[in-house]
Design a protein around this nucleic acid. Sequence first.
DNA 1: ACGTTATCTGACAACGTTGCCAGATATCCA
DNA 2: TGGATATCTGGCAACGTTGTCAGATAACGT
Lengths: 370, 370
Amino acid sequence: MVATLKDVARAAGVSVSTVSRVVRDVDYIDAATRRRVLDAIQALQYRPNPVARRLKYGRTYTIGFIIHDISNPFYGHLVIGADRYISSIESPEFDLFIVNTGRDPKKEKHAAEVMLDRRVEGVILASTATSECLEAFREMVVQHGIPVVSIDNYLGGFEYGIVSAENQVGAYQLMQHLIQHGHRRIGVLAGPEAESHARERMEGCRQALQEAGYTSEGMLIAAGNWSVEDGYRITREWLEGKWPPTAIFSSNNLMCMGALYAIQECGLCVPRDVAVVSFDGVEFGTFLRPILTTLGYDWERIGEEAARLVLQARTVAGYSDQPHYVRVPVQLLIGESCGCHFASNRRRDIGEKGSSSARRAERRCSKCEG
Amino acid sequence: MVATLKDVARAAGVSVSTVSRVVRDVDYIDAATRRRVLDAIQALQYRPNPVARRLKYGRTYTIGFIIHDISNPFYGHLVIGADRYISSIESPEFDLFIVNTGRDPKKEKHAAEVMLDRRVEGVILASTATSECLEAFREMVVQHGIPVVSIDNYLGGFEYGIVSAENQVGAYQLMQHLIQHGHRRIGVLAGPEAESHARERMEGCRQALQEAGYTSEGMLIAAGNWSVEDGYRITREWLEGKWPPTAIFSSNNLMCMGALYAIQECGLCVPRDVAVVSFDGVEFGTFLRPILTTLGYDWERIGEEAARLVLQARTVAGYSDQPHYVRVPVQLLIGESCGCHFASNRRRDIGEKGSSSARRAERRCSKCEG
DNA sequence: ACGTTATCTGACAACGTTGCCAGATATCCA
DNA sequence: TGGATATCTGGCAACGTTGTCAGATAACGT
């Protein structure tokens, strides 16, 4: 069906080796011979068979990418970033082998198996490695020598690298901003204690609160599992409690959506009754009213850095004892949900050039220093 | 590094052929021999090399998936659906090879080349095949015999199948609902005339308007390129015109976001000043205030059907002269942006089971029949 | 006893590439 | 002139798998 080296060789009247040399552009080749071979390649529309090459080289040129939920824009951006990096090195060509776990631990564990079956050369892990899966990933590294790069989560030291946002700094800034608005009773929607970036974000919160002289007793802190449902449930409980918070800090975007939902269902108004800020940035956040105040960072950049690290891991001599940390900078994006108010409420973001988030950050609130 | 058939054969004291037979579970094998081989496989952690298999079989077991923008949840759901179908057939195992075009025609054309290089066995096309790329895809089919299944777009007849929503019926229902609210001056944000699903949606609109006895002169119709920016720009022009619309029908979700943006920027209120309805469903649409009235359909189902069609195309004897059409049902999801009003404004969607969109559809407006 | 069939196994040639070795000319320097 | 070197080419064995062929033994029916 498709032409092979042998077909080209026959058509050009040379040996297979010669054609291979022309294709790879190596060794000495007579100009006239090369001409004939190239003509034959052209005529037969020859394309090297990547499968045969991979077998010959004994490599798969495939990077595994385990993600929670590809329908979540965050993960989509990760993929775009990783893809961009991989495409930037034109030779050899790498594939991204994406497995979607849907937050199912069973599927996640299975994903580790699939990665070994496909003989990926490295794995980017953007999925909460639950304790049972963790062992599978550790085996992947120590037993099979496949480097793992984790997104936003410390796995225990066997990973080659970790890429994440400046979680602590970001949470600190975000919380500090809330404090500047004078809130004393703040509900903090934390992530699962087991995940390192949840802990980092909490640490940033604590730091800001401590600096402001807040005691822990006045605080409302509850851990959710990052989901809309948990954000909704917890916020709802708070608001229906005897001493509801006047502000809510969410550790991620989904829980924030749940919180907003709960607030509106209770007939309360943002930011008048309850102020809301959230880590992560919210897709379409500028379309919400009021505009959300969030802590944004470059999601694609994270994917890019992760891909860079995995490929680097393969070429570097030995593993280091310490995982490589890569931190992507964060940016406080001030909207209105925190209580900030802007003289001109006209939003020109869309018509103008540049990202709307960058533009948001430039604006100055008339009430606070933000 | 990794064990091969040869290693297992040596360990078990049998030939490579025998091991291969055990692995594939074919032919006669002595029970004791099988036992020994299985033990060796276990001990050496043997896994068949997929690359070698593919070379031997002369197939890649790979389906190409060309998409606009993986960070858009719509495409993410397509991928999940396609992946689900592919995983449902446990043998042989297929790969999904995803290429993100970012709506860049140059990248799209390049994607066609990449598909040939990787020797995919079929292609799902969820990207506007611009005229220049169209030829590349036609060649893929007629010259290389690679079946193409298109999402939501008629390519000219060479595609094996087309999967899309019930565009015309859906647009009809959505427009009819708007008309029932008594609007006479309606702005229709259409898609590019070149794309078949844009035409189908327009046709549904026309049908509803005609049945209601509307003349075309009262209508505002403008074609955008599906983007937030175009939705914003066009709506803005309409609202600043001398005879602004009292309602807007958007042919897709992104343009709808732009329209909402423009309306709010003009200081107008939805649905009091301008009612808004949109095709496609909007991710987090229930979180917007007012809740959007949209026409939803199962995005994952579309991906699933597309994968089914591509794999079917490979096994079916010959191409049919007519593309196979698969239509996924649509559902009118009534919110508040159309002007509907609900006695109880409490939204219990999140706490309850079942999709929030389904729940939305059940509610009854006190003013209209919707 | 024989031939026939069932059961079990190994050797070997592919699949499409590439790397190595060896051979054939042509060109160069001493 | 001779030997060394540069230039050019083909043959062949791999990579890890599978399918075919053929051989070996055992079990069977006549």
